[in-house]
Design a protein around this nucleic acid. Structure first.
Lengths: 167, 167
DNA sequence: TATTGTTATACTCTATAACTATA
DNA sequence: TATAGTTATAGAGTATAACAATA
């Protein structure tokens, strides 16, 4: 008989499908708002957001790539666009000369400030309208450990260990 | 003062961030498995899955596009690839001559059968490992109404009604 | 040697709008 | 007139691997 630890029961399947659909629909709504309000894609918004949230306004490329779950070369491309648009600057990392510190500019902060209200509105209307405060707390309580678990097993390294040794 | 109905409190923000991260990490893991086990992308897998799940093995283009949250022209492209690969066929809809019925082939069903075990394993290991059965039920119970709510307000039509009339 | 980040090439996918055909 | 689906063109994004520089 098949290993039951990998079977996905109907309830799990429903949760999985709902998750996939919800994130696709949410992403759609978000991208539309960001495009209209600030000519931003979701990826570039996330980069700016991460930078905006730090006191220094800086992050290293690798940290950013990891944070937003993006390839390095892809991030180089996206940050290149942000730099061209004057929303971030790049400079060698002070502590590690190999690294690059990406820093948000005033224009970048201004852009975030401009799109944030609309962003919150979309998230609020789309995601949280049908959820009570307690629901939101419960949702966070469920998804946070999942995220931590996924982060603990980085998808990039750790070659897919399919077909675990039958114990 | 700003309309509080659109404010996103810290708990909601945490839930939102966790959701975005979880779906990105999950999608990554899934795409990797599908590529390795069946040379499939997630989009094309979803199309095949939807078809495989019906008795007839058929769906109309529009229904498919709506189900997987995809643009019509994009779906035409993806289904074109699936057809080239012999995984689906296309034929005029019997009832509505404008429509196109996409049907999964035996090869398509075989491919799904081949990748499904690995797919379930990834979903199980990544998403459900840290969740109890009750947790999964709770998660489904939260996300299902959210999905229904998002579906009720299609992102395509219904122009973004920002700045609701102050009531 | 390992890591950081960039680059180059080729490729995949997407966006937009125009277009055909049927309802 | 409205809807279903396709197409064309152009552009955006991605993957892969090779590369330079620092640790």
């Amino acid at each position: 008989m098949p290993d039951p630890s990998h079977a996905v029961d109907p309830v799990q399947l429903g949760a999985y499908f709902a998750l996939v659909e919800v994130s696709a629909l949410l992403q759609h709504g978000i991208e539309q708002q960001l495009r209209e309000d600030g000519d931003l894609t979701f990826v570039r918004f996330q980069v700016l957001m991460r930078l905006d949230q730090t006191a220094t306004g800086s992050h290293r490329m690798t940290d950013l790539a990891d944070a937003i779950v993006y390839s390095r070369s892809g991030l180089t491309y996206q940050v290149g666009l942000l730099e061209k648009a004057g929303l971030v600057t790049r400079a060698p990392s002070p502590d590690d000369e190999r690294g690059v510190a990406v820093t948000i500019t005033d224009a970048g902060r201004a852009l975030i400030a401009r799109v944030l209200p609309g962003h919150e509105e979309v998230v609020s209307d789309l995601l949280f309208e049908p959820l009570s405060r307690d629901d939101a707390r419960t949702l966070a309580g469920l998804l946070t450990p999942v995220r931590d678990h996924m982060r603990a097993a980085p998808p990039r390294s750790a070659a897919p260990r399919r077909r675990s040794p039958r114990s």
